[in-house]
Design a binder for these strands. Structure first.
Lengths: 148, 148
DNA sequence: GTGTAATAGATGCGCTTGCATGTAGTGTCA
DNA sequence: TGACACTACATGCAAGCGCATCTATTACAC
């Protein structure tokens, strides 16, 4: 493994990079235009929304999220300040805290989804048919299923 | 257009995001481990290397690059400081400058490519066969060919 | 228990970024 | 040639980030 890549490999790589940049830029811009918080906030709010009243510990949110520990720590501080989440000391672990979403946080996530889903539809949805979507998903999922 | 996305659309979107993050993180990490500059530098060095002795104007580099004007301006300043590029006043436009790659810049680009190509191979190349690569390229290229 | 290692999370520092704006040179139209 | 818009690039400021490190607590070994 790890010989020099063939040209078609590089082409696929470039297509992947550009596609994601392009699509994500579009969504980020939409968020901004609508006065909504940046992209990463959505994922956190969504995790917390799913978790419900009991909330989550920061280290639980961190799993599967592509943020380093200190990044999440500061993100939560900002979200707290914005009134979207609440942080209370964990009852079971003196080092930790429970993070729960607030009503305002839930509303904001909903607002973000309105914009986000439009972005997904106008990029991916309006470009590919169902079969193509499934092909993309099947293929690309292989990339992050493995340890590289 | 722009109705709510179907589930398979969202799945494809998520796969796209994660795949790119995952693969790019891997490459960025490799650069760092090898004491090389970050990812974006590669693209700029590559453009300049291709351009040869006559170099490029910053606004020419900016085209097709996913950096804002001020981002490129400061990136070039850093690359200049690092000794990878030279900036001289443009002979034909008093407002502008010509940017050329230095020998050291060329070497660094080469070193980056050694690492970069291994990353591409070990993510995309070792995961997909030729047909799959072409499928990915054909599909994803549609995403940024269009105005969204 | 006591000492040591590991874990949860926060934070100081320096660098990078985004946003808005600044500066200087060019083009254009009368 | 002079006024005015436009383009090329730089930059001050505030916010964000990576890196290393810190504090507080828990877990584990003996």
């Amino acid at each position: 493994m790890s010989k020099k890549p063939e040209e078609y490999v590089v082409d696929a790589w470039i297509a992947l990079l550009r596609a994601k940049e392009h699509a994500l830029d579009h969504v980020e811009k939409s968020f901004k235009e609508n006065g909504l918080p940046p992209f990463f906030w959505y994922d956190v709010l969504w995790e917390l929304d799913k978790a419900g009243e009991k909330g989550l510990r920061p280290y639980e949110i961190e799993q599967g999220m592509l943020l380093p520990q200190y990044g999440l720590s500061r993100l939560l501080a900002r979200m707290d300040k914005a009134g979207y989440v609440e942080r209370t000391p964990s009852p079971v672990d003196g080092r930790g805290q429970q993070v729960t979403i607030t009503e305002q946080g839930r509303e904001t996530r909903q607002n973000m989804w309105e914009v986000y889903s439009k972005g997904i539809q106008s990029t991916v949805g309006d470009t590919f048919n169902e079969e193509e979507c499934r092909t993309i998903q099947n293929l690309l999922t292989r990339l992050h299923r493995q340890k590289v």
